[in-house]
């Protein structure tokens, strides 16, 4: 344990940031680095195994999997980080407010909404959103955010409830500090850490959810590459040409690993003496 907490920047945080930086570089540099056009279809070269000219092989249209993976990264990463950040922001706010006004009607209403959403079939919501607003990536994000914030709200609320009984908050209240001040100065920073850690762990399942919903048309529309839909499309040929999945899977594994390491590092840095929540 102690070994991990050396210095201001824990080892895992550094490692995570380095991996993430590398992925970001590869993805941002896709136009320069990708060996082929990610959209160009070549029927003669379809479903080829990995080779010198196609390091990760080709898909059913003869498109280069490596190039598609690199190009697809910006959309997947951008979207999932955006979705996560939005869910995080909403969840933090709702959780803080609910916790602050514990045992008032505000809390009751918020908790009922949260319970309802937790018990709600996600697929129904996704289909309704696709049908009402149309398909496409943005709507997928709306669907995901509208459900995902709940976990963060619950966590934040419980942390706030625990903190409220602590002396520093009580002292602030006694000294006459306003609710907003207490929320922003005292509660927010300390609730941040467990919530951030939870968020970094959620990224992987978020990316996989993108692929699970692509059959509804929620997600990237063809031909743009995106890791989630590449996984979904690769399923048809999975037993004969598993290499199609290799590119996106490797990148997702690395991304999730990087975020996990960052999460652990953050916990050690932000929360060194607290009992870890996750």
């Amino acid at each position: 344990m102690n070994r991990l907490r050396n210095g201001r920047y824990p080892l895992s945080l550094t490692a995570g940031l380095v991996i993430l930086g590398l992925i970001a570089l590869l993805v941002a540099g896709a136009p320069l680095l990708a060996p082929h056009d990610p959209l160009e279809q070549k029927a003669a070269e379809r479903l080829e195994k990995p080779s010198a000219s196609h390091l990760l092989g080709t898909d059913r249209f003869g498109r280069d999997v490596l190039s598609r993976t690199l190009h697809g990264g910006s959309m997947t990463l951008g979207a999932s980080v955006l979705a996560l950040a939005s869910a995080l922001a909403i969840g933090l706010l709702a959780g803080l407010v609910a916790g602050m006004f514990h045992r008032t009607w505000v809390d009751v209403v918020l908790m009922r909404i949260i319970d309802t959403l937790m018990a709600f079939p996600f697929m129904v919501l996704a289909i309704v959103i696709a049908a009402l607003f149309g398909t496409g990536f943005i709507h997928l994000l709306i669907a995901i955010v509208s459900v995902w914030w709940v976990a963060f709200a619950r966590l934040t609320r419980s942390v706030v409830l625990q903190l409220k009984s602590e002396t520093s908050i009580a002292a602030a209240q006694v000294l006459g500090a306003g609710t907003t001040v207490i929320l922003m100065r005292e509660l927010l920073p300390r609730a941040m850490s467990p919530v951030l850690i939870l968020a970094t762990f959620e990224l992987g399942s978020l990316i996989l959810t993108l692929s699970a919903l692509s059959f509804l048309g929620l997600g990237a529309q063809p031909p743009s590459p995106e890791w989630g839909s590449m996984l979904a499309d690769g399923r048809d040929h999975f037993l004969q040409a598993p290499h199609i999945l290799l590119g996106p899977t490797l990148f997702i594994v690395m991304t999730v690993l990087a975020f996990n390491l960052i999460g652990e590092g953050l916990r050690d840095r932000l929360d060194p003496y607290e009992r870890a929540k996750l």
């Binding site: 289909i127 696709a130 049908a131 149309g134 398909t135 692509s214 509804l216 048309g217 929620l218 529309q221 063809p222 031909p223």
Partner: peptide
């Protein structure tokens, strides 16, 4: 050319 892939109800609608 755009392709919009989704549930059949979208086409019906």
């Amino acid at each position: 050319a755009q392709v919009q892939h989704g549930d059949y109800s979208l086409i019906e609608t």
